[in-house]
Computed example of a mutant assay.
Amino acid sequence: MESRRFVRRLVVGAVALAVTAGAVPSAVAAGNDHGGSTGVMRVVGAGGGTLGPEWGPAFAGDPVRFEIDGRATDPLHPSGTFHVVHRKPDGKLLAEFSGPITSLKAVDEVAVVTGVIDSADHPGLPREMIGKNISLTVYDGGRQDRISWIWGFFDAPVSLLQGTAPTFPLTEGGFQVHGTGHAAKASGTTVAVKAAGDGTTVAALLGDATLRFQFAARVPAGGNPTEVQGDFHFVDRRGSGVDVEGRIDCLVAGGPVAVATGVVTASNDPAKVGKPVSFSLKDGRIDRLGWIWGFAADAPQIVDCQSVVPSYAPRWGGLAVR
């Protein structure tokens, strides 16, 4: 129930979603090589905007600004810093905090950066900040960059390498994301999404010779991320033999990036039934998918609408985020 409250607060803007801390090795698909990266990943820039009415009377109209300067060849051993400033409309400081980056994963134009606060000034926010973890998801969209955040000082545990969908569009400044990526040919999108008014719709049918993923979920207009209807089916024939299907319990999208969590309802391995799963999806020039298996021995705890950077590129099929 606590994680569901965090999701609802994401919608109204009081605080972002939560996930538990810890590294995420074989339980997580972190790249096409399923864990490794090649080359230097970089996130640099500064930008911000004004919080809208969905953030409620406490924060609507507040200007916020983010600065990130980080790089990594190993996602769990990055270098760099982050800096966040949140003011009131009259210019008074609500909170300002900064610190070192603790993990950084970037693929194509999407990145997740985590860090720990070591300096803070927060006259308008009576919270303990020093030593708290944060997570930032960045989408380098060219003319329309996006960001999202998870604040540990709102009692939201932050996990290395994990974030949510970049729901906040920047209106000034921007970020450059230089991510790793092994361009795979998608032979054409086989997904059709029928618009049905407002709301969030994500659909996917993609894979390669040994992997197949099917996904369809929708949040109706006015609904929060946990008011989703949808399901998934994942088959991996590369040695793990994973064949799982189930329902989607949470879905949030920002621009072309979506994050979803769910639970296994059927599998070729009965021990997997009832276990949570997490997915990330990117609808782009190269569609990408990421996942966390909650049934793996080394899996982190999965919390609603949290996942890793989408990294796996299909050989066929595609996906759509609306």
Results as ranks from 00 to 15, higher is better:
Ile130Met: 11
Gly70Lys: 01
Arg127His: 13
Ser187Asn: 15
Gly70Glu: 00
Leu94Pro: 02
Val228Gln: 01
Ala266Asp: 15
His233Lys: 08
Pro166Asp: 03
Leu289Tyr: 13
Gly223Trp: 08
Ala46Ser: 15
Ser103Leu: 03
Leu10Ile: 08
Asp298Glu: 12
Ala120Lys: 02
Lys194Tyr: 14
Ala299Phe: 09
Thr164Asp: 04
Phe215Gln: 03
Met41Asn: 03
Ala60Ser: 14
Thr137His: 04
Lys194Asn: 15
Ala120Glu: 07
Phe66Ile: 05
Pro57Gln: 10
Met1Arg: 12
Ile292Lys: 00
Gly223Lys: 08
Gln306Met: 14
Trp149Lys: 08
Asp140Asn: 13
Arg42Cys: 07
Pro63Met: 11
Val191Gln: 08
Ser267Gly: 10
Val308His: 07
Val263Cys: 02
Leu125Trp: 07
Trp149Phe: 13
Ala320Cys: 13
Lys105Ile: 07
Gly246Val: 03
Gly255Val: 05
Gly246Tyr: 00
Lys272Asn: 12
Gly262Arg: 00
Val12His: 14
Ala196Tyr: 10
Gln306Phe: 08
Ala216Pro: 04
Ile302Gly: 02
Ala111Glu: 02
Ala195Thr: 11
Val158Met: 09
Leu205Phe: 09
Asp108Ala: 08
Leu205Asn: 11
Gly48Thr: 01
Glu227Trp: 08
Arg237Trp: 12
Gly255Glu: 02
Gly31Glu: 08
Phe59Glu: 02
Gly22Leu: 07
Leu51Ile: 12
Leu17Arg: 11
Pro100Arg: 08
Phe59Arg: 10
Gly254Asp: 01
Asp118Glu: 11
Gly115Cys: 06
Pro126Ile: 06
Ala21Trp: 01
Gly22Asn: 14
Arg8Cys: 09
Gln301Asn: 13
Gly255Arg: 04
Gly223Ala: 12
Thr20Gly: 14
Pro166Asn: 04
Gly131Cys: 13
Gly49Thr: 07
Asp145Pro: 02
Pro53Cys: 07
Arg146Ser: 05
Thr164Ser: 13
Gly274Asp: 09
Ala217Arg: 03
Ser311Trp: 00
Ala14Glu: 10
Arg218Thr: 14
Lys282Met: 11
Arg87Ile: 00
Ala221Arg: 14
Ala297Asn: 15
Arg238Gly: 08
Val321Lys: 05
Arg315Val: 12
Gly290Tyr: 01
Pro157Ser: 12
Ala297Ile: 13
Met129Gln: 04
Tyr139Val: 05
Thr81Tyr: 01
Gly317Pro: 03
Arg87Lys: 14
Thr73Asn: 10
Thr210Arg: 15
Val303Ala: 15
Val235Gly: 07
Val138Arg: 00
